[in-house]
Design a protein around this nucleic acid. Structure first.
Lengths: 116, 116
DNA sequence: CAGAATCCTCAAAGATACTG
DNA sequence: CAGTATCTTTGAGGATTCTG
């Protein structure tokens, strides 16, 4: 396996984790503050979200901006580089919506065959 | 968060795991036997590969076929449902290849900013 | 050859408390 | 509000052995 493949695999691992797709999906609609994102995620812990956003920021996919308000505020937005992920992610997301029933059916069939 | 979103999120988790994209990528080129796949993966253990293939089979994405030879043989091939994932996955894979250098650059910049 | 079964480890996620 | 810090837990994955 060549270097290119290793590098891109590492990258794939980083962008296809549990939360990234969902975070990017909501951020594509517009900038959001930390807790707003958290509320959109349903089930993510504050720690996981922080870690994920840090990695996305480090990879140049989201931008972190501190808002100078009376209360501390941090706004996350998608970068131009992050935008390039919009289409691939939408395709995946749409796939999941379009084919979820087919997959469910396949699962039922499989389980029926492998009962006993 | 509505049911559709939960379902598709579960599905997304299942198809965006560490190995699925790579396995589907090689199987798209043609059917392969277990150990052939394993050799293509570089780093996967037999256990992980088995688990992954089982899940893909259960989800109707790959087909498992026992070949009646002198030596036991099992061939895995992609299903029509699995084929529908080819385009989304290719888009992702191509993204990783196209933008890996941009991401690397972003990482360097980030790390430089956050050193001292 | 293609797994199943077992044991084991360690890294990731969760819970909780604290803070600029 | 948006985190950091610390501790604990759990379970996914690795190593190894065995088998139809």
């Amino acid at each position: 396996m060549c270097e290119d493949q290793k590098t891109s695999r590492l990258l794939l691992d980083q962008i296809t984790d549990k939360w990234t797709i969902l975070i990017l999906t909501v951020l594509c609609k517009g900038p959001l503050r930390f807790n707003k994102i958290k509320r959109n995620m349903d089930g993510i812990t504050q720690k996981s979200l922080t870690q994920c956003l840090r990695r996305l920021e480090r990879n140049g996919i989201v931008c972190r901006r501190v808002i100078p308000t009376s209360q501390v505020g941090v706004e996350y937005s998608i970068t131009p580089l992050g935008r390039t992920l919009e289409t691939p992610f939408q395709a995946l997301y749409r796939w999941a919506l379009d084919y979820s029933s087919d997959v469910s059916q396949a699962q039922e069939d499989f389980d029926r065959r492998n009962v006993g």
